[in-house]
Design a protein around this nucleic acid. Structure first.
Length: 255
DNA sequence: ATGGTCGGCAACCGA
């Protein structure tokens, strides 16, 4: 089984990249974030023509998540309200006996802001949701853009960004709780060296070329699945295609 | 070389 996650930064702007990648890599499941499209405008026909089922929840302009899969997901939920705010950031479902969750965690603006507090509350709520509804001894995949670099390995300039949004101890303490609960960072299980990132800020000139990036996208899995993981990698080729997203694909293969 | 991010969506906001 092959799964991947990709922050598309508009599924409509990224449709050629996504369709090309599906054709080349043929994942069983692709988790998408920042689709930036209302459900009525979601490109269902293109996805179907590529041989994939789609579940999605979008909103105008911002956020939006989707799960594309060769086999249809069952038991789909598309809402996880936090502090009465129900943005399009969450999809859960089941693929056979594997439970899957796709998330787009709030970016958080800057520490001290309301957006930052909301980000922490959102992560806390997600963790409680997972702990309430799932068991670490059963197969669960949680993938998406967590908008947090966990360690210095996950960021090109840890000293420069220490305490800033995306590399703040309060964010990292929350991620730690996901790991403590029983979710394994599948990329880090397999790749423990090299400046490997999944996101390069468009605003840094030649940031991709200079590899000034962040590894803020994750594929997390509980033990029974993590034991079956054989490899994980970041597909930088997709970032070299015309009109790339500011993120690229993170991929994992399971037995 | 006298500039320098994207995408959405219609003026800026968010990342």
């Amino acid at each position: 089984m092959k799964v991947a996650t990709f922050n598309a930064n508009s599924i409509r702007a990224r449709l050629p990249v996504i369709l090309g990648w599906l054709k080349r890599e043929a994942p069983d499941i692709l988790f998408l974030q920042e689709t930036k499209v209302q459900d009525v405008d979601f490109p269902v026909d293109s996805v179907k023509a590529a041989g994939y089922h789609a579940v999605f929840r979008g909103q105008k302009s911002y956020n939006g998540v989707a799960v594309l899969s060769k086999s249809p997901l069952t038991d789909v939920e598309t809402s996880l309200p936090v502090e009465d705010v129900d943005e399009a950031r969450f999809i859960s479902g089941r693929a056979g006996d594997i439970h899957v969750i796709n998330v787009y965690v709030p970016q958080g603006f800057e520490p001290g802001s309301d957006k930052f507090r909301f980000k922490l509350a959102w992560l806390d709520h997600l963790l409680r949701h997972i702990a309430d509804y799932y068991d670490p001894s059963s197969p669960l995949l949680t993938a998406g853009d967590l908008n947090v670099a966990f360690t210095e390995m996950d960021l090109f300039d840890p000293e420069g960004f220490r305490g800033k949004v995306g590399f703040h101890p309060d964010e990292q303490a929350l991620l730690r709780r996901f790991f403590d609960w029983g979710l394994v960072d599948i990329f880090r299980k397999h790749v423990t060296e090299g400046d490997e990132y999944t996101f390069w800020d468009y605003r840094i000139p030649n940031g991709f070329k200079r590899n000034m990036g962040w590894r803020i996208d994750y594929i997390l899995a509980t033990a029974p699945l993590a034991e079956r993981s054989r490899s994980a990698w970041i597909d930088k080729k997709a970032r070299a295609m015309p009109k790339p997203s500011d993120h690229t694909f993170l991929v994992a293969e399971f037995e």
